[in-house]
Simulated scan of single mutants.
Amino acid sequence: MSNETLTPSTLRPSYVEPGKDFDRDTNYIEDRIALDGRDGWPVEPGRYRLVAARACPWANRTAIVRRLLGLERVISLGMPGPTHDKNSWTFDLDPNGVDPVLGIERIQQAYFARFPDYPRGITVPALVDVPSGKVVTNNYPQITLDFETEWADYHRPGAPDLYPVALRAEIDEVANLIFHDVNNGVYKCGFAGSQKSYERAYGTLFSRLDWLEERLTNQRYLVGDTITEADIRLFTTLARFDAVYHGHFKCNRNKLSEMPVLWAYARDLFQTPGFGDTIDFEQIKKHYYVTHSDINPTGIVPAGPDASGWLTAHGREALGGRPFGDGTPPEAPLESERVPAL
């Protein structure tokens, strides 16, 4: 992506367009950090910083993969606060509101350092080149795949294979269905601009959740007998379902906790090192209920639901499976990256 392809534009101030379906802009900065440095960004320990807000489900994926593979040693983590304005996410959780590595107040500054007047959404996750302060990519589906493949030389001993070659076609197929119908499906409900578009998205979402309920009845994980990229992509939506999507996005046919198989599956992953230890329910709720002022103009953040249920027994071990395959669980999170205990 080059400067010549971009023109100045203002960022969209609202998430809902009356009378229209929600249409996510999936045009991302497609540069990749690769072993061969094909786009000018070679794999290099310590060079890049992952900016990934706790609140964001797309960013949450990258934080989980980074943890599971042990990439904390080679890719640092910057964490914006849970809320943002129409311009970008800010580092309001850091001292003086400045990211301690990048020295910026907003992730927007990293985008503009590379593309002045960047015209699209200033999104997380984003990988930033620390020496130049320029954003490299915000292409979140590719970021995790590259963590799993291009960064393999820097995986921790015992890191799981989250994208096994023999299962990639099935992982990609399942992940694609989940993206359109579940990950993005909840947003299609919440940001629907008409009753008709909402009801269409609602039907698609719950049909897919029913399909997942059936698929996971007799197998512990989505593809194969170990945790893969597909499970990570589904988990971050399930983790936010009862806290946000059920009420805020009107995805209220039932709660996740009322779908016995999916609820047990989600708890199984939550209790697996690398998953629940990246989840901060208070930040998640504050992000959605405060930031989406067009659908929650009061800005009131719900006190519930009680999150302690995530720690209850799930019984999924009876289905067999090996969470990390031939690998091992990750070590405890870095002290600076720990989330509040439930």
Rank of each mutant, 00 (worst) to 15 (best):
R215G: 00
L212Q: 14
V223P: 02
P273M: 14
H248L: 10
G193N: 05
R215Y: 00
W263R: 12
T278W: 10
D294N: 07
E282Y: 00
V244P: 02
F281R: 02
I171M: 08
R208K: 12
K196C: 04
G190S: 14
L205S: 12
R240A: 09
H180E: 11
D172H: 09
G224N: 02
W211P: 03
V244H: 09
Y289I: 01
S293F: 04
F270C: 00
W263M: 05
A266Y: 13
A169N: 15
A230R: 06
D294A: 00
T226Y: 01
H246A: 12
G193H: 12
G203Y: 03
N254A: 15
D172T: 06
Y265V: 00
I178E: 12
F249C: 03
F270M: 05
R253C: 09
T226K: 12
Q283S: 10
Y221T: 09
D210Q: 00
T204M: 05
G224H: 07
Y202I: 09
F191L: 15
F275V: 02
F249N: 08
H248F: 14
E213C: 10
Y198G: 10
Q219I: 01
G247S: 10
Y245S: 07
N254R: 14
G276C: 07
D231A: 13
F241I: 01
Q219M: 07
